[in-house]
Design a protein around this nucleic acid. Structure first.
Lengths: 189, 189, 189, 189
DNA sequence: TATGAATGAGACTTCATTCAT
DNA sequence: GATGAATGAAGTCTCATTCAT
């Protein structure tokens, strides 16, 4: 018996949304997994859409916080900054696999409201900012920053999905190699 | 007025699935867009699941065919093979944007049957094969082939989504740069 | 098997609404009585509220048409006009008892839309008009026309309910007496 | 802050039932208006049906008491008795508008129990008794007593509703005229 | 005594699927 | 072959009622 039913509901919803998508997940499914009555969900969230948006904001915020925390801003060099972001992304993925899958599969959903979209855009903006700083210093290729994000974030997401699917076993050794690969994609050679 | 209702249905379903997902798309939506009666869909497909699987196999096969056709197999060198695959992926994306979005967002669906999963695995296997050949020849980094796929394919998908979202304008010039970036990620430097 | 399911639904809804009220009547109840599937109701009406409003407009219009038809307008004298309205009201009540009970118990409902309210107001306006004409000719007491309507219509409705409840048996003889009673209430004595 | 929560609950329920009907009123609505917790209602009433029946009995009893008190029984003449009942009805309506609306709209409810129905029948019986006495004395028309009640009570209720709806402003002058109108309806002319 | 969080039955409504035309 | 009216299972959501605090 958990003390916090709202947490239980969010956790259950996150796993189910990540696995089956928003429309493929029913309120009774969430209630069962969270071990609460179906009606209880409506004490904490106005409706299903409100639930998915609350959850989305929460997950993106967590992800963003991980990347931001201890970020070697002005002081650190570009290589170091890249490394920080890359490893923090994998750290988040490791500890919050469902959150990441949920974010990735729902970030374009027609049910997201303005706030959700803004939070997601802000999250991307942080990475874009770091990249553009790196470009100014001449360490990163002169490509549109959105393209650079796409390469690194896209590769990261796919690597994570592969690992989730059991097609890849992630060791510390491999992670270092992947980090170097991705760095090679964006740095000036 | 199309001659082939089955084609109309598949095309309508592809667009809707790509935009709203399998569970977020209803049969009446598909019938409306395809300009056929809802019952007509059941003359061509046993049910909704059968439709999404038929469509998935069709799209993956098309994608695979594009990559395979004129592939510089044993003759070509590794750099050339990589280039072929990369440009062909973008070519497919350009001409079949919905197909690619549909594949990407449905390739893990709980509703996919054995055949669909096999076709998708075979598609990945083709790329894996090319990569492993490249590794044997010493041109590509010694990472798990799944990891290498993930990096290139993940970057590609994300780039394409960015372009779809209007966050990136793809010119011939940019494409060449992106190709080089991705190559840098997997080649031995 | 009726040819017209929409009619069946309206008829079933009318009886149930009249007996149990709008909120006390469920869609499955209506579907059962109309011998259609619950979903069928939604092919003909957007939702429950739309159903009750359609029904209300239909019933009031029928009632209004009965009173209007063959109304001895400018030609007839006031006594004759009163008689016409009174007997037509009872005629409608006899042939459409549920319609009248439905109108009476739902005319103040919070679920009625603008159109419904307008149709009801127009219906009352017709009677008010007849009364005011009678007053101008000096045959009817100088009371607010709304008060006169209230007396006659209120008495009529209550008489009808009594009859419905089995507390009163309406014969032709009695009807004539009641008509005279009500006339006495509004005429100048 | 009222001393008596039971009173608060009954008052809140009366207003809501009068405005939205039994089925259109929820327990939380009543609790909110009464400023008590939803659970508190169940300390005073077994369930919603018990509440509506308690309330109905209370309201009808109040109404009946008003009509009975100081009733000019054997002594008074028929005209005086009629006058008493008529003015007392309006007095009750003025001081307890919600009670009257509630009685009128719920007196046929499927949820009323035996006691409620008996109390209501007894109430009508009192008026019937007075009427029949008047008939014996030759002052009132020889119509079924239920018909006479219906005319007077029906007219009264409708007049009251008109006033509530703002379609009629009740002055002392008008009231006297209405009383005479109604008397004309039932007396022998 | 009073509360309101929690529940689940049942409400309204949607939609995959069937079938008479 | 093609249609869309009809269906009822299942979805989202509400609310009468209970019970731990």
């Amino acid at each position: 018996m958990s003390k916090n039913k709202q947490e239980d509901i969010l956790e259950a919803a996150m796993q189910l949304f990540a696995e089956r998508g928003y429309d493929g997940t029913t309120i009774p499914m969430i209630a069962d997994k969270a071990k609460v009555g179906a009606g209880t969900i409506y004490r904490y969230f106005d409706n299903k859409e409100s639930l998915v948006n609350s959850l989305f904001v929460k997950c993106v915020t967590q992800f963003s916080d991980i990347l931001n925390s201890e970020f070697p801003g002005n002081s650190g060099d570009v290589r170091e900054q890249f490394s920080h972001i890359f490893y923090r992304m994998f750290q988040f993925a490791k500890h919050n696999p469902y959150a990441l899958l949920f974010i990735d599969s729902h970030c374009m959903g027609y049910y997201l409201n303005e706030e959700s979209n803004k939070v997601y855009d802000d999250f991307l903006a942080f990475i874009i900012g770091a990249i553009e700083k790196g470009q100014e210093r001449g360490a990163i290729r002169q490509l549109p920053s959105n393209a650079l994000i796409a390469i690194v974030y896209g590769a990261f997401i796919m690597l994570f999905k592969m690992e989730q699917a059991g097609a890849l076993e992630n060791t510390g050794q491999l992670l270092e190699e992947l980090e170097e690969s991705c760095w090679n994609a964006v740095r000036i050679i």
